[in-house]
Design a protein around this nucleic acid. Structure first.
Length: 922
RNA sequence: GGGCGAAUAGUUCAGUUGGCUAGAGCGCCUGCUUUACACGCAGGAAGUCACAGGUUCGAGUCCUGUUUCGCCCACCA
């Protein structure tokens, strides 16, 4: 410790790792079994097990850890469950790519060999991501860690599937799904990302079979014409409806297809004729079903034209597009080509253009599941912050579509359905059935497909607690308290978790959802690998410290708003860490010099500290030293190092105690409101500007005085300790470290009390008094600066007041004023002539004169005072007009009117004094 | 096409139920090796609160419209 104490600047290296290990070893990450009261539970949104930590994780995890640590210190059994996600497609892609780089085709080696490799990869990367999360300081209960594809979670997924299947909510159908020709799997609607593409609209002529001319269809995808099975016009289209029933010759083929009437065709759009390709377009699919059209598939799953395309077979879909257009043009069947901007779906994982593709998939019916989930949010049983997301949620839930849950992948939960070779029976079962229940046949084949990743994550509030088994954890910790996540997965995950919980647990999954912003770069762009604008958080932690990163993220993150991140923002956190460190060094250095006792080793502080229960503001005024000692006991467990008398608590001590309790109160209120940034910012401001800039400066002479330093050290150490407590949820490492330095501290800060205060702030009179000191000091500093007084030149400050009462109020602060304004001394006079020559200014009812022989430039001084006077007069003009307005005095609340009157009086006095000063200058 | 969000100092953002002589960090200017801290201290400059109307005694805040930027949703050929 000695070594750290001697650091000239705070360097977090080593300290952070040390405390994380110490907390873990002490078993502080799990819920404290001795605590009663409502548990506070969060399940960590599981990061991709093969991924690495990014800034988004840092923000979300910092918020969660802040909440968890706060709740833990408040005395609730706090549980934060870690876990990782198998991330089906993402992981399969990575592993396939690795294999491809070695020249291995995954389809050649087969499912089992591929999975073995994937599991190995998972085992390697799992340690990396969890290690990174530890670096952040997250107080997760690692003994309860879960993985979406581990044994227990497998059972949960199977159970969920079978229950839904038995209920008839899961069905299998041949349907047009979003197909990724690159990854060769179906994906859900939500995994499709639409991008605006500048394409073309080709007008193609389809000759009528009877030779009487042609119809012109407009399309963005001519290559799908080989799958056309009709041309549609609107049934009420006056100009075209008479063609319904006729046949057209499909160019480049020998097929004839009918012209049908369907309202899908809009007479106002395109040419009024639409080619219908039921196997390759979602709208056409619907049209095809309505008219019982044949579904002609003209591509392979990989997006290559098949035999339906005749001479074009074997071409890729985009090559074929060019070729078809050229061929039609040659035949005179290309009417025209227009530029056309439209939205094209891409796979959000690999970026390839989605192909609507006809295939047999598994679906989950959603409307029945959605109903209770919509109700829960509408009725406020689950609260969303910020509230505006309720609208987005409702809109999606009310238009919910069935969820395609099967994926043609290997890395995932294999669908627990077996097909009987004998009778085609479909058996959904929790374990592999021995024989077919229908025909008794013993030859059963399991479904090849796996489930969508989100089919395991939607169980995430209860599967980590042991569901479907009846576990004590489930009873105790479900529903969970808060879900913290970014809003971009509100549909993928949040909405589905709500549905799953009501379906399987018949209760809500969490009481509230806290949506935080997305971390962007300093130009507002999303962080992405391809842009290379995503910093590695671990490198940032190495350089700035985890506390700095957490502090900056939490403090600078307005609720739910995206944040623009640049490394400069980390300096705020880092500098603040150093500030706390330096202040501690100053106070403890003096403590050691003074040789104060460390306190009794057996002292134990209460686990919960509600400061208002110690006494009221009046009690504080009456016996401040007694209550101070009680507060000390509440914080440290023992008694103060010296016996304090009421008189030991001076103006500045009482002021800082008042401010401290006010900060405790504001911090708690903001935490309750989930305004984490305000909570952190309030403590930051208190500590930096009030505690360091004013209080520590004010007590320096007393710290050097052997007679006086005992009592003032007690106040300073208490101020440090309470500040650490308030800051600990956001900056766990440095606060734990510095807490351990405080001689009277016992045990870990992490599971000590988080002070609460809901009472009326004590020492209001002293607070006002100190604020007057601050104002006068500010005025003198300003004056000195404007006059260009040498910093080393001290001299006397004369404070002229109108009467004895004001003078009496001031006397107690004179020494402080002289100290803080760097004057030789300060003196109060009642009335009397202007000292001259002197620089002069006004602070409230106090006129301030700095007699400065030869220093004052008369003209400059006059100009300065005139400028100030003009500003005040201008303001007073407006204020008088306002007060003269009867409507204002009649309508505005009394306190507002009174405030205006007070301000006016104050400014009038000040203006009067400024005029007198000007007169005195001649 | 529909919805949501943002617009306040050079910049990044606070500003909660209307009471504001509009704040903070960074940056800028001036001064300071004051025995915790230059990752610091003190002082200062800097704003038509996007625009136009309206409600009100009073609008950064509420209402209507407009502009610009961003995001989400939607099957438009």
């Amino acid at each position: 410790m000695e070594e750290i104490r001697n650091m000239s600047q705070y360097a977090p290296g080593g300290i952070e790792e040390k405390w994380y290990a110490a907390w873990e070893e002490a078993g502080l990450f799990g819920p404290d079994p001795d605590l009663e009261g409502d548990p506070f539970v969060i399940t960590l949104p599981p990061p991709n097990v093969t991924g690495i930590l990014h800034m988004g994780h840092c923000l979300g995890n910092s918020i969660q850890d802040t909440l968890i640590r706060w709740a833990r210190m408040r005395g609730q059994p706090a549980l934060w469950i870690p876990g990782t996600d198998h991330a089906s497609i993402a992981t399969e892609q990575v592993v396939s790519r690795q294999m491809a780089a070695e020249g291995i085709d995954k389809r050649e080696v087969g499912r089992d060999a591929f999975l073995e490799r994937a599991w190995n990869w998972k085992d390697q990367t799992h340690g990396r991501i969890t290690q990174q999360i530890r670096r952040l300081g997250c107080s997760l209960d690692w003994s309860r860690e879960a993985f979406t594809m581990d044994e227990a979670r497998n059972r949960a997924v199977t159970e969920a599937f079978v229950l839904l299947k038995e209920k008839g909510l899961i069905y299998r159908d041949v349907y047009l799904v979003n197909w990724c020709p690159h990854d060769l799997t179906a994906i859900s609607d939500d995994e499709v990302e639409y991008q605006e593409i500048e394409g073309h609209l080709w007008h193609l002529k389809y000759p009528l079979a009877d030779g009487g001319g042609h119809v012109t269809v407009a399309t963005t995808r001519p290559e799908t014409m080989f799958g056309d099975t009709a041309v549609a016009v609107h049934p009420n289209d006056p100009e075209r409806k008479q063609l319904i029933g006729k046949m057209v010759k499909l160019p480049l083929t020998d097929r004839e297809i009918p012209i049908i009437g369907d309202h899908h065709a809009d007479p106002e759009k395109g040419t009024g004729f639409v080619k219908i390709t039921p196997a390759h377009d979602p709208n056409d699919f619907e049209v095809g079903r309505r008219h019982d059209l044949e579904q002609v598939i003209c591509m392979t799953p990989a997006g290559v034209m098949n035999e339906q395309a005749g001479a074009f077979a074997g071409l890729g879909r985009s090559e074929c597009r060019q070729a078809v257009v050229e061929a039609l043009d040659k035949d005179g069947l290309l009417d025209k080509t227009e530029k056309h901007v439209h939205q094209v779906g891409h796979h959000d994982r690999c970026g390839h253009v989605i192909e609507p593709y006809l295939s047999r998939q598994w679906f989950l019916k959603m409307d029945e599941l959605a109903a209770p989930a919509v109700k829960a949010v509408a009725e406020g049983e689950i609260k969303l912050f910020p509230e505006r997301w309720v609208g987005v949620y409702d809109n999606w839930m009310n238009n919910i579509r069935d969820w395609c849950i099967s994926r043609q992948l290997w890395w995932g939960h294999r669908i627990p359905v077996w097909y009987c070779d004998g009778c085609d029976e479909e058996i959904a079962a929790r374990t592999a059935p021995a024989a077919c229940p229908a025909c008794g046949g013993g030859k059963l084949t399991q479904e090849e497909d796996v489930l969508d990743t989100w089919f395991s994550s939607w169980l995430w509030t209860f599967s980590p607690l042991g569901w479907p088994d009846q576990t004590p954890d489930q009873e105790k910790f479900h529903p969970t308290s808060v879900l913290v996540t970014a809003p971009d997965i509100i549909f993928f995950w949040v909405a589905r978790m709500i549905m799953a919980s009501y379906e399987f647990k018949a209760e809500k999954p969490f009481a509230e959802v806290l949506f935080h912003g997305i971390v962007r770069d300093d130009q507002g762009r999303k962080m992405s690998k391809s842009l290379g604008n995503s910093p590695d958080p671990i490198l940032l932690i190495d350089e700035y410290g985890s506390d700095a990163l957490r502090c900056s993220l939490v403090m600078l993150t307005p609720t739910g708003q995206d944040i623009f991140f640049s490394e400069a923002t980390l300096e705020v956190g880092r500098n603040f860490c150093n500030k706390i460190f330096q202040a501690t060094k100053l106070v403890l250095g003096t403590w050691e010099e003074a040789g104060l006792p460390d306190g009794n080793p057996n002292d134990t502080a209460p686990r919960i500290l509600e400061i208002e229960s110690l006494g009221s503001a009046d009690d504080w005024a009456e016996r401040p030293a007694g209550l101070f000692a009680e507060l000390w006991t509440g914080v440290f467990g023992g008694t103060p190092p010296v016996e304090l008398q009421d008189g030991d608590l001076r103006l500045e001590d009482r002021w800082i105690l008042g401010r401290l309790l006010d900060t405790v109160s504001g911090c708690g209120a903001n935490m309750e409101k989930r305004r984490l940034n305000d909570a952190a910012y309030g403590v930051f401001n208190f500590f930096r500007h009030e505690f360091c800039d004013w209080y520590l400066e004010a007590i320096k002479p007393r710290l050097r005085d052997e007679q006086e330093r005992g009592p003032v050290l007690a106040t300073a150490v208490l101020g440090l300790a309470v500040s650490y407590k308030l800051l600990h949820p956001v900056m766990p490492f440095i606060t734990e470290e510095l807490w351990s330095w405080l001689p009277p501290s016992r045990g870990f800060l992490m599971n000590s009390s988080f002070p609460g205060f809901r009472g009326k702030t004590p020492f209001q009179r002293e607070c006002a008094g100190f604020e007057q000191v601050m104002e006068i000091v500010g005025a003198i500093r300003n004056l000195r600066n404007e006059l260009g007084v040498q910093p080393g030149k001290r001299g006397r400050a004369i404070l002229r007041v109108p009467g004895d009462a004001v003078a009496a109020e001031l006397t107690g602060g004179l020494a402080l004023i002289a100290l803080l304004a760097k004057m030789e001394d300060a003196e109060v006079v009642v009335g009397g002539p202007d000292p001259s020559p002197a620089g002069a200014t006004v602070a409230g009812a106090v006129e301030i004169f700095l007699p400065m022989e030869g220093l004052v430039d008369l003209d400059k001084e006059k100009a300065r005072l005139n400028k100030e006077l003009a500003g005040i007069e201008n303001w007073m003009k407006g204020c008088r007009a306002k007060l003269a307005n009867e409507k204002f005095t009649a309508n505005a609340p009394d306190h507002v009117v009174q405030k205006q009157k007070d301000l006016l009086a104050e400014n009038e006095t000040k203006a009067g004094k400024l005029r007198e000063m000007l007169d005195a200058l001649g």
